[in-house]
Design a protein around this nucleic acid. Structure first.
Lengths: 195, 195
DNA sequence: CCAGTAGGTTACTTGAAGTAAGTTACCTCC
DNA sequence: GGAGGTAACTTACTTCAAGTAACCTACTGG
């Protein structure tokens, strides 16, 4: 099997095993076995257990950014941007329960590099949102824009988890909550007329 | 040394070592050595490495709840409750940088039980906030109250982290941001006059 | 047919979690 | 005041998983 394909397959399996067992309890032997390959191959391609984890996180991160950006292009008006971005995120979660469990629970896990990588996902989202806000309200204080972005990301992440406990709340409704509460609060601050 | 005192000392040291090295890289041997005791004593009192971690988390959780509840008693009006609670949280973080790093980065780490314990902290906070909201607006939809509580907790947690990257933002200002954005957004929904 | 290399394996070392069995010293009760 | 029980502690081990060294195999180009 060609290297690229094997690497992709390893990420797939690793994501599943990490999500199932947790990072610590997951063993490289099990991952290797389920891939149908021997352990040194994992080390050949990813260097370490941590490297494999980071590979998983990185893959999820890339896809999330991709989907979010595609979702918000073409939106009309700030509320629409926020709404579409949020929806893309909530849908990403539904489609990638495994990856998401991994990100939230496992990746914050090891030595600094993995923490950095996960935190990088959130940074990526806050940067995107911060840029959108700054674009919409050019005169806004930079620190304030950052704070808003953090609030959006924090609310959203938490609501995503809450949705798992309450299956009747889907992406659409979760999006509504964030838009209704956070957007109105923000709008009241950044526009004279309250949004 | 009496058992209770030794146990407390172990938590103290463990928290520091976990925060310094990360949960994985922290070794029971090092913790034992820094406590000035041999490894089996740790196992005698906490059962496992994970048990020790959970002990740390539990301790932090208890203290956080304690401080928050003390902070909000005697507050006048809903906004004051929110404001005081938030301030208590942000101050807790400043006072407990180590514990906080542990909670956010490390505890979400291991087998399910630790995840549960950490998630329990957030549940504790959302329950408290949910109860406050329901108390303030008796007719509110229960699901909506929950969603608001999640939004408050998510925003706050994220802003706390953001504060670490921006030392010039202290607890007071972070509190302002959450109150200004989230409270106004909520108020617009739960009261007819928008605040 | 030979050589080089991509993709792979077996069998090992190392290091940390967890444990069994024993030791010290204090405190109590006859 | 000595026997005995128990709380606090240690040494010396086992086990299990991460990581590695050294070797193998089959295909491809000359």
């Amino acid at each position: 099997m060609p290297k690229a394909q094997r690497k992709a397959q390893m990420l797939e399996v690793a994501e599943a095993v990490f999500a199932e067992r947790g990072y610590l309890a997951a063993s490289m032997d099990e991952i290797a076995e389920r891939v149908g390959v021997s352990k040194p191959m994992l080390y050949e391609y990813y260097g370490s257990k941590e490297g494999l984890l980071i590979g998983c996180v990185h893959r999820a991160r890339t896809e999330l950014l991709d989907r979010t950006q595609r979702a918000i292009t073409g939106a009309e008006g700030p509320e629409e941007v926020l709404r579409r971005g949020l929806l893309a995120f909530f849908e990403f979660i539904v489609d990638h329960k495994q990856a998401w469990a991994l990100l939230r629970q496992e990746a914050a896990v090891t030595v600094p590099s993995a923490v950095e990588e996960v935190e990088g996902i959130r940074r990526q989202q806050t940067d995107l949102i911060g840029a959108v806000i700054t674009g919409l309200v050019p005169g806004i204080d930079q620190v304030e824009a950052e704070a808003f972005a953090e609030i959006v990301v924090g609310s959203t992440e938490r609501l995503a988890l809450w949705c798992e406990r309450r299956p009747e709340i889907g992406p659409a409704r979760a999006t509504d909550y964030v838009v209704d509460v956070v957007w109105r609060g923000m709008a009241a601050r950044i526009t004279p007329d309250g949004g």
